[in-house]
Design a protein around this nucleic acid. Sequence first.
DNA 1: GGGATTTTGTTCACGCCTAGAGCATAAACT
DNA 2: AGTTTATGCTCTAGGCGTGAACAAAATCCC
Lengths: 415, 415
Amino acid sequence: MNGATTSGELRAHNRSRLLRAVHDCGAARTRSQLTRELGLARGTASVLVAGLVEDELLHEAPAAEHGRGRPTQVPGPHPRGPLALAADVREDAWELAACELGGRATVLAVRPHDGTPEGALGTLGAALAAERGRLGHRVIGTGVALAGPVRHGGLVDIAHLGWRSVDVPRLLGAGREPPLPAGEVFVGNDTAFAALAEARRGRLRGVRVGLHLHVDFDPGGVLVVDGRPLGGATGSGAEFGHMPLIGGERPCPCGAIGCWSMEVGANALLRHAGLEHGGGRGRAQAEHVLATSREAVAANAAALGRGIAALVNAHDPEAVTLSGHGAELYERAGEALRAACEPYLMAIRRERPPRIEGSALGWRGALLGAMESVFDAFLTPGGLECWRRNHADQGRDTPDTRNVMNSTSPAENPL
Amino acid sequence: MNGATTSGELRAHNRSRLLRAVHDCGAARTRSQLTRELGLARGTASVLVAGLVEDELLHEAPAAEHGRGRPTQVPGPHPRGPLALAADVREDAWELAACELGGRATVLAVRPHDGTPEGALGTLGAALAAERGRLGHRVIGTGVALAGPVRHGGLVDIAHLGWRSVDVPRLLGAGREPPLPAGEVFVGNDTAFAALAEARRGRLRGVRVGLHLHVDFDPGGVLVVDGRPLGGATGSGAEFGHMPLIGGERPCPCGAIGCWSMEVGANALLRHAGLEHGGGRGRAQAEHVLATSREAVAANAAALGRGIAALVNAHDPEAVTLSGHGAELYERAGEALRAACEPYLMAIRRERPPRIEGSALGWRGALLGAMESVFDAFLTPGGLECWRRNHADQGRDTPDTRNVMNSTSPAENPL
DNA sequence: GGGATTTTGTTCACGCCTAGAGCATAAACT
DNA sequence: AGTTTATGCTCTAGGCGTGAACAAAATCCC
């Protein structure tokens, strides 16, 4: 990823640059635009595109609109090209999608579950195995978003569901055919994935330093620098919710004291409204409270705002984006949020506060981020070389994998 | 910086890689070691080194120790090679040094000042102008560390000194000959620079995600990711001190409420000991308290520890390093610090806590970090190309700039 | 003490890559 | 229908790193 050293790596580097450019723009740019943007000579682009088409990574279609000269082509995903599987596992249900180069996602399944590791991940593992069998070598990896801290290797803790060091890749792959190669499963925190999606296809696009907060049952937050969320040393960053940002000494299920996450999110919303603590259950109740109780919403928004002030002071982001319930809180009680934020800002931040806004991706962020993480690993010289090798072996003898995208529910374009 | 695209850029990329490797190891590696580490062919290394020697960027000297075969050379700084000027401006004094490739620093001057922008920066500007005149084209840039948030363009606020939007480049360069080209002055926060130095030549070397805390009159902190401190959108990140990490509603001079910085550092130390609030004065008094009052030290260390817990929860660093008074607090009251930290850690962090340790660079961190920031800009294809052009013009006709390093006080090796 | 061994530096033919010029192509404009 | 304009394709020229062959300079060992 860090630049070529030899002439041979130069070609591989430019291949991945071109393919990434196609992916990042959602397959919406013409070949001549891409050539100019990447600063390539037309001849070089010619050779590169021809090679990528040859490898079934790209497919060129005529551009819809013409200017004056010779019409140009639009490089997009190849009909037998790479697919990323992406899953979003929440406290009460999971969702599975297949995504092609450029980011077009097709939802394959949505299923409620019982909140246990086996109940959630066993059924998902079966669905993944089925899809991998059906799609064959086109599957380049699987991204899985989870609502808790993820350590390297895929160990997950979700305190309010009682998950302790749950080995996600094992539960997903146990006894399945074909087995899940370890390097192809990307397990990540839902907030971090939502932030990644926001950085690539949402309101943090082009932002050098941004802060993304995802509020579901409790709040998570992560810093996005140069388009990448910061993952932490063991993979479990994105835990801004577990700082005592607004005081208090309430013990948190995470084991610490006074965490911000006790005051923001669906769990806190239920408590503010005098209902039983949610603990990962009661999404419908929470949504009812959100829709009916002004005071609970205002208190939640104020707690959110006060925490945002602290984070803005510390990190000086250019923009703050909110997803999950955060976007709803901002819509319904934006004034309360801002009013709670302002007194806790440093004077120099108050002069030029970052913009605060709802996510452009709604509740789809985590799923799309899981997809992006798969393509991030694929769109590198190493990833493409791997595809090339696999492709030469088995590419031509599985014609039944053609046109898979058309056989499922209507595709949705995340842009 | 993001990899070569053409053959020409390949050469430039490898030139800067080699030169950076020499700089980062403190000119302590042999040519054959560097060749292996960078994965170059011996022939390529030959050509690259010859080119860099030709451009007066490197100078080869025989290696002191020999193995069995033909003896190798050690590439180091050229006697007429590039120099970085680095200054550390504190509340009561400044220090100026010249640094050659590899990081060897020679202190040129230390001067107390009155704490006003003019008093501090006017005298420093005069000293800088004199050095730039004396050293000529060898000066590749100037790094200036300051004890407050720095916005892009060099605007600095130091609340407890009453500095408001002080334009540092202007005050440094106003009316001087030769004038300071804007691109060559790198103004930065002392904490961020200390963290940079720690990442390159201290205890955060090789650490992917680290947290560096620098405690002087108040605490500053910054996250270090892949060897780079995170600067924030407007350049003024590194302000972890201005989160309400340990509760309280005390108004802070920064304009916010309940900041951690009110409870940690020399200012807090003086207050805990019942003395007048420091406000950037009274370093001697603070050191006296530090040496004599166990209770004040313990309270300060506990506040430091509790904040560290919150930051570790949020960011999951691999290591936490402390500089300034932080290192002293850790030495004298490490137990109190740890005891205050632990209850506020998440359970999953408590199992594998990051290592906490004092800086390897003492109070020199900010100065060395300022130096590193100059070399960071220089050791790029663009920076080296610039040197090459300047050098061809005026390189040969200023023999009086030779051996400058030997004409000043004895050199100190930061390693 | 002299030859064998080992490691490093230098030189050069080779293959690979991109740039850029020239030409072909295909549309819109006049 | 001819001109203009932008794009795609082909081929040559120039640059770069590789790796092998050779030279150099030390240690090791008999």
